[in-house]
Amino acid sequence: MPSIDNSFLMNHTCLRIKDPKVTIPFYTEGLGFKLIKTFPFETFTLYMLNYENESNKDLNWSAREGVLELCHNHGVENDPDYKLNHGNGTEFRGFGHICVTVDNIEVVQEKLLAKGVKFQKKLSDGRQKNIAFALDPNGYWIELVENGINKVEAKTDSANYRFNHSMIRVKDPKKSLDFYKNVLGFKIISKKDFPEAKFTLYFLGYDHDPEFKEDSQQGNEQMKRSSLIELTHNWGTESDPDFKGYHNGNSTENGAIQGYGHTCVSCKDPAKFCAEIEQELGDKADWSLKWDQGNIKKIAFIRDPDGYSVEILGHDLFANQPNL
């Protein structure tokens, strides 16, 4: 297993968007994110959003947990035929949602409804009355769950919000857990089985406390975290010869539409980390971009067993580039 030190964190999740003039205000004004960096390139622009506080405000964007990267390909906002895949349709399923946990979920839902935000599921819908799913302007599902941090009756404060997790569906949990735990160094924060519906949820993240015990955190304590990844396993897919797998968000084969991009691991010495992965896995490592070999230097991309991309970068990437 590659060596994992205390610098490792899950930095960001990337989603493609159609129109930043619509999407950025949704996340900043509606969900309280702060736009902390903007990186314009020739054909696309990256917008980095984060819940900023006293503990992270002096850190470079790539040294933070819980960053949301929104990728805008220039010109698509003017294309009436441009569509994005939110990952939950009958075809090309894969990515499921991102989750923001909030201090007072009833107030947050009322605030979003007043702004005209559409919901896939309101609190009053279905059996689970403590979870809602809002829709962003691109159709992505945003799970809303209450974390209870500093809760005040009839009020909400985005200083208490957390970008808690990103959910992807996986075919074979044994293979996926082996990758996320033994290659990337994640730990199982909790595991939840739902026998009636025949699926299991695995929540994974970095925890550098030597006393931490896997599968030991539930409820509000887990909801207070940032930067987890939720692996959803629908029972039987791992042994179904007719199951063709999940869409990774990036492929356009067989008429697939892009949407979700990747998650990202950040550490102080990413070059060393990539070299150790190479040494450990050899040809079994599924690199879509090896370390420092792309147009953007000092990054790498590796694919997990389902083909989802994971970016690897350092805490100082673009540190000297001014915000635009």
Score class of each variant (00 low, 15 high):
Q217H: 00
L324D: 11
D79I: 10
G255A: 10
C264W: 07
I296K: 06
P270W: 08
N138R: 01
L123R: 14
K244M: 07
T38E: 14
K21C: 03
Q293A: 10
S309C: 09
V100C: 02
P20D: 06
K198G: 09
D103E: 02
N56D: 01
V100T: 07
D242N: 14
C264R: 07
V22G: 01
S226A: 14
I4W: 03
D304E: 14
C71L: 15
P137R: 03
D19N: 15
E65D: 13
G96Q: 11
D193F: 05
K83I: 07
K297D: 01
G294Q: 07
G32V: 00
I299H: 02
Y308C: 09
K175Y: 05
D306C: 11
N182G: 00
V265N: 08
G205C: 10
E29P: 00
H315P: 01
I189W: 02
F26D: 03
K129H: 15
P40G: 09
P210L: 05
T13Q: 09
Y260Q: 08
H247K: 12
L201G: 01
K21V: 06
G282Y: 04
V117G: 03
S239G: 02
G219I: 04
K272H: 06
N53Y: 03
M10K: 14
I189T: 06
V76P: 01
G87Q: 11
S227N: 11
L31H: 01
E280L: 01
L228H: 08
P40K: 08
S226K: 15
H247Q: 07
K151R: 15
L70D: 12
G219P: 02
M48K: 12
Y51K: 00
T156W: 03
D316M: 09
H233F: 12
H262K: 04
S227M: 11
I4P: 02
V152S: 04
S239E: 12
Y308I: 05
C99P: 03
Q109A: 08
P322W: 02
Q258W: 09
D193T: 09
H97M: 05
R225S: 06
E146T: 01
K118C: 06
W235N: 10
G66H: 05
L123F: 10
D269S: 10
I131C: 08
L15F: 14
S190M: 03
L144W: 05
D207F: 02
M48D: 04
L313N: 14
G96A: 08
H12P: 04
E110F: 03
N104R: 04
D5E: 08
P2G: 05
N138D: 15
